[in-house]
Design a protein around this nucleic acid. Sequence first.
DNA 1: GCTGTGACTCCTT
DNA 2: AAAGGAGCCACAG
Length: 114
Amino acid sequence: MPTPPDPAARILAAVRAIPRGEVAGYGEVARRAGLPGRARWVARLLAASDDPRMPWHRVLRSDGRIAFPPESEAWREQAARLRAEGVEVVEGRVHVARAQRGADALDAEVWGPD
DNA sequence: GCTGTGACTCCTT
DNA sequence: AAAGGAGCCACAG
């Protein structure tokens, strides 16, 4: 039997597995890696990763919002990267429009591609 | 080794 | 709808 990859490697692999133009939540990534409840670890790992191929910008909080402080440098960076691959970002959150604030927009489902 | 701090999430008020 | 609190865990001081 192959030795099970260490948890950190599985999490990073799960992040890399998010297709271009799609997004996933921290908790969702953790679950996919077989580590439910480790959302914070996912965030910590992404912060520590220096791999330029890591699509860290596709990982959002469970409510679809960007996890960085609003208007911060990283916050802008993430929003820009998402838009660059076709993901609609409004006020720091993906266009998932679960109703809320004048939401007359149609629900373009970008959430939970699985 | 204990405390505070997060790129978190969920449940209860 | 918004706020509080508990659970979570790695890391820095």
